[in-house]
Amino acid sequence: MSSAGKRPSQLTRNLSAKIASIPMMLTALVIFVGGTAWTVFYSFTNSRLLPRLNFVGFNQYERLWAAPRWNVAVENLAIYGVLMLIFSLLIGFVLAALMDQKIRFEDTFRTIFLYPFALSFIVTGLVWQWLLNPDFGVQAVVRSLGWTSFTFDPLYDQRIVIYGILIAALWQGTGLVMCLMLAGLRGIDEDIWKAARVDGIPTWRTYVQIIIPMMRPVFITTLVIIAASIVKVYDLVVAQTSGGPGISSEVPAKYVYDYMFHAQNLGQGFAASTMMLLSVIIIVIPWAYLEFGGRKHA
């Protein structure tokens, strides 16, 4: 039991709390630190079907960056990532600003905007696969209305397939951004609006020059959440296109999975996942520094 005496020893102090925290300690040390270190370590070996300690230096990374499939995956992730960030922030903020105008049916609108977020990426991907099906979906419907040369088949066109995935991802994710932004807007003092109105500043300028700068923490947090989810994007692609046509909609997370569990080339999978980790570190470290480095958190 916990400390009853006056000067308990360091180890038995708070013993119950320590015992209760064992799962957390194990997860943090064994899985998060240990697992990550293990994968990074083995990415320097030529493991194939099974992990083996046969070091080959940066060989796996050289092969990774020479592989067309990996380069396509990285390029896709870059396009998807940049556009996803811009559009989900933009749409999310505009929706939140509209919702913040003391409108009627606010709950109904919010329910509608957020319901796709409750659905899995598999469901999202399959629905949009169907909607974008060139023989039955949007393209076929527009053609049947008389515009016979209308072409909109992103999932079957190598050059634009990533935008087809982006459409589905935006449908699924902007509701969350809207909710976070709305929470941010509601946190802003009503007096600021009154002051801006008294000074005769137009609404859009109040948003751009006063409100958005004030919402900086909300934007940063949202940015990090979106960015972390972008790097992980996997299920959506699997469901919507399976990486096709050809390899044109591959993403890094899928590359990792395929090389680890199908191509029996663990080394490549480890190297690719280490690259994913690196990209997240580049995103998270500056944020963590801004968020936790500057001031003390409760």
């Binding site: 997860t27 943090a28 899985i31 998060f32 240990g34 697992g35 990550t36 293990w38 994968t39 990074v40 992990p51 990090v224 972390a228 790097v231 992980k232 890094p252 997370a253 990792v256 999975y257 680890m260 663990l266 999978g269 480890f270 690719a272 996942s273 280490t274 994913m276 980790l277 997240v280 995103i283 998270v284």
Partner: peptide, 12 residues
Amino acid sequence: GAFIPYQIMIYP
């Protein structure tokens, strides 16, 4: 750890 891509911890 919540931000680390799952892919890196899957195999261990």
